[in-house]
């Protein structure tokens, strides 16, 4: 068996080759939509004045970031498809099973790549929003906007792990089960758009993401022992 540390770079390179165009597109869309949302904010300030905008934010609980809402989910879903559909379609996963290192570790490296890339994409979107709002908004109103944003990013990670497990899953029965879990699980992340609504739910969200991340290994295990429709 080859030590996994020697395999990280080649595996990351493989993932890079598969996902680079998707990542470029995702980066452009996320940065573009986040920038557009902030341009709408700046346009409103120049037209109506900062006072008017802040009063509306306070009284109507407006957050200025609603345009971003479903993007992280789309990005997570797309990332998993781009990463794992070729593995299954071109039977690459079968080849990977015959490589001289532990399959669970190589799946871990692949998921780590996806997680890292999603983090970078979401961070770029977040930094554009935070950087624009940090100066003009009082900390309370800045927190109001940011507090609605992070459950959506969390939903993006959840969508990524669940879609990965679904794509890697060799049997239709389990696939349908995973799709149901994905739909209901995503509903939990989108239960409320109200600012600060998820303040007491951060650990639960992290727990759900961690649980979702383990399901891919289960799918690969079933693939390895020969379950297939």
């Amino acid at each position: 068996m080859i030590n996994i540390q020697y395999m990280i770079r080649p595996l990351f390179y493989k993932e890079w080759m598969k996902t680079r165009w998707f990542l470029l597109l995702t980066f452009i869309v996320l940065v573009g939509v986040s920038s557009y949302a902030m341009m709408v904010f700046q346009h409103a300030v120049s037209r109506k004045g900062m006072e008017h905008l802040l009063i509306m934010m306070l009284m109507r609980k407006a957050t200025l970031v609603h345009l971003v809402k479903y993007l992280p989910i789309g990005v997570g879903l797309g990332m998993a498809i781009v990463q794992f559909v070729p593995e299954m379609h071109k039977k690459c996963l079968k080849l990977t099973l015959h490589l001289p290192f532990v399959i669970s570790k190589s799946i871990g490296v692949m998921l780590a790549w996806g997680t890292l890339m999603l983090t970078l994409c979401f961070a770029s979107s977040f930094l554009i929003i935070f950087g624009t709002l940090y100066g003009p908004l009082p900390s309370e109103l800045l927190a109001q906007s940011i507090s609605t944003l992070y459950p959506w990013y969390a939903a993006g990670f959840f969508a990524y792990f669940m879609t990965s497990a679904t794509v890697l899953e060799p049997t239709w029965g389990w696939r349908i089960g995973y799709v149901l879990i994905t739909a209901l699980g995503l509903r939990i992340f989108l239960l409320s758009d109200q600012p600060f609504a998820y303040t007491h739910f951060t650990w639960e969200m992290i727990g759900l993401i961690i649980l979702a991340s383990t399901l891919s290994w289960q799918s690969v295990h079933r693939f390895k022992v020969g379950h297939q429709d």
Binding site: S104, I181, L211, A212, T214, L215, Q218
Partner: peptide, 13 residues
Amino acid sequence: MNRIYQITFVIFI
């Protein structure tokens, strides 16, 4: 290890 994955799935359900 497979047992752990099964447990997490059951927790989810």
